[in-house]
Amino acid sequence: MLIDSHCHLDFPDFADDLDGIVARAAASGVGRMVTISTRVRRLPELLAIAERFPNVYCSVGTHPHHVDEEDGISADELVALAQHPKVVAFGEAGLDYFYEHGARDAQERGFREHISAARATGLPLVIHTREADADCGKILADEMGKGAFRAVLHCYTGGRDLAMQAIDLGLSISFTGILTFKKSQSLRDLAAELPADRVMVETDAPYLAPGKYRGKRNEPAYVVETAKVLAEIRGVTLDEITRQTTENFFRLFGKVPAPTATA
């Protein structure tokens, strides 16, 4: 069983096809999906989807693109919202200096509040970081010094230094279809050397369709294409990378119930 640890089933791209999306994922061996929050205030929309499908779970959080509209949401509020049984993580939160859609100080405030929520609950934080390696690394080190928390750097495209720092801090790294792109050799080189117990796969659907689906709408069923490439570059079978990434997911996302065989 594969896991799509990060998708966006509440996005308009899927509005008319949710049943088909979930059915195709199951037919492709995708046993769990986590639909990731980008705005805390839209959590009810994610919960409606997660409650509709037994194998779909969700997070709660504010994407750095939207921090200006949700500046001031506290760790306590996040913790309260995470009491729902289908909310299994915080985020995605972090830093994005590529688009600069949110003020940097607001991005940092939000990032730290999400970390506080993760620390308080033991639930993982899904981290979005783009073109902000140095600041992201500083915040992670500073916050880890205040007390341990669990997190994954999702859709990783950053440098080796941040990745290795994250590994040293006990965090995980997740890869999308970008891993399959022709120009992503440096990313594949990095993915090949990471510890086996820290890697995961995701789609970030509807974006970043891998391999033969490039340019089309992405969906959770396609996570297998990323898993195939990850297996190839790490010199293991698809069955082995499926087992390892799935075990890694359930270890990190402990609130998601694992099948008996995996547990």
Score class of each variant (00 low, 15 high):
Leu2Asn: 01
Met33Ser: 08
Asp13His: 15
Tyr99Pro: 03
Ser59Glu: 11
Gly61Ser: 11
Gln244His: 00
Gly102Gln: 10
Asp189Leu: 02
Gly20Pro: 03
Ala227Val: 09
His66Ser: 13
Thr157Val: 09
Phe149Asn: 02
Glu51Pro: 06
Asp168Thr: 10
Ile36Pro: 05
Ala263Phe: 02
Ala258Trp: 07
Glu240Met: 00
Pro85Gln: 08
Glu100Tyr: 00
Arg104Phe: 14
Ala48Ser: 15
Gly110Arg: 02
Ala258Glu: 11
Arg234Trp: 05
Gln165Gly: 01
Lys182Met: 06
Ala205Val: 00
His8Ser: 07
Val87Lys: 04
Met1Thr: 08
Val79Trp: 07
Val79Ile: 15
Ile21Met: 08
Arg24Thr: 03
Leu153Trp: 00
Gly110Asp: 13
Asp68Gly: 08
Glu108Lys: 15
Ser184Thr: 09
Val67Leu: 12
Arg24His: 07
Asp17Cys: 06
Asp168Met: 07
Gly20Tyr: 01
Ala221Trp: 02
Val88Cys: 07
Ile49Cys: 09
Ile36Met: 10
Leu2Phe: 14
Thr157Gln: 06
Pro12Met: 04
Arg112Lys: 03
Ala258Asn: 01
Leu230Pro: 02
Ile49Ala: 10
Asp133Met: 08
Arg243Ala: 12
His114Trp: 11
Glu77Phe: 00
Thr38Asp: 12
Phe250His: 08
Ala93Gln: 09
Glu219Arg: 08
Leu46His: 15
Ala120Trp: 08
Arg198Ile: 02
Gly147Ile: 11
Leu169Gly: 06
Asp4Tyr: 02
Glu232Thr: 09
Gly102Cys: 08
Gly110Glu: 12
Ile173Asn: 03
Val126His: 00
Arg234His: 06
Ala163Val: 01
Lys255Ala: 15
Gln107Pro: 14
Arg130Ser: 05
